[in-house]
């Protein structure tokens, strides 16, 4: 039995008819009480938007519980599964409808866990989206380990409908990506 970890490979250009599905990005119905939009743009190293990226978020519910309900692929509009998927459009824009994640423990900084795939990106990238001006950010072990510039790449900004978070795969504002090994 092989125990060599299976290497990743790029998602390629042709996932668009296979992985996206109806309701994939709507963890809660858009506009429902407590819902927010989490959205942004994905850029390459030249600052051009990436129209063939796929983002997935995984998060606690508003009370900080880890969801363990199935139903992400056939959403019933009532069950919070904590997981969603959004592909970028021709402008490199993605958008989720969800709720703010709650803290899993007293004093812990809540965040969205994020996975990024794209044509041209040979393996997944993972990181966190923290909430702007959350008091617990100041004591978060990851955030305090980063420089101010790096930290800024991991904190969303508030806008009229919720949160904006851009992903830069490369360049001056390159997003800080994580490994958990």
């Amino acid at each position: 039995m092989s125990t060599i970890p299976t290497p990743g490979q790029t998602i390629g250009p042709f996932f668009g008819y296979a992985l996206p599905y109806e309701g994939d990005a709507d963890l809660v119905p858009p506009g429902s009480p407590g819902s927010i939009r989490l959205h942004g743009w994905v850029y390459d190293g030249a600052g051009n938007p990436i129209p063939d990226a796929l983002l997935e978020i995984w998060q606690t519910d508003a009370e900080g519980n880890v969801p363990q309900a199935e139903g992400s692929l056939h959403r019933d509009g009532w069950t919070f599964t904590g997981w969603g998927r959004a592909d970028t459009d021709l402008n490199g824009h993605y958008s989720f409808s969800t709720v703010l994640p709650g803290a899993t423990a007293e004093g812990a900084a809540p965040f969205f866990a994020l996975t990024v795939f794209a044509r041209g990106l040979l393996d997944k990238l993972q990181t966190r989206i923290y909430l702007p001006e959350h008091p617990a950010n100041a004591g978060d072990p990851l955030l305090v380990s980063l420089s101010e510039d790096e930290r800024a790449t991991l904190v969303a900004t508030a806008d009229a409908t919720g949160l904006r978070f851009d992903v830069h795969l490369q360049g001056d504002r390159e997003t800080t990506f994580l490994n958990y090994g």
Binding site: D44, G45, A46, N48, I50, W58, Q59, T60, V66, P67, Q68, A69, E70, S72, L73, T81, G82, W83, P101, T104, A105, A108, F111, A113, A118, R119, G120, L121, L122, L125, R128, P141, L142, S145, L146, E150, L169, Q170, E174, T175, T176, F177, L178, N179, Y180, G181
Partner: peptide, 23 residues
């Protein structure tokens, strides 16, 4: 133009990262 130039930063996985979405 689509690869990060910096090494990934180490993070100790926290609660949500130790669980997988459920299907």
């Amino acid at each position: 133009l689509r690869h990060p130039t910096k090494d990934p930063r180490h993070a100790d996985p926290e609660t949500i990262e130790l669980w997988a979405p459920c299907f």
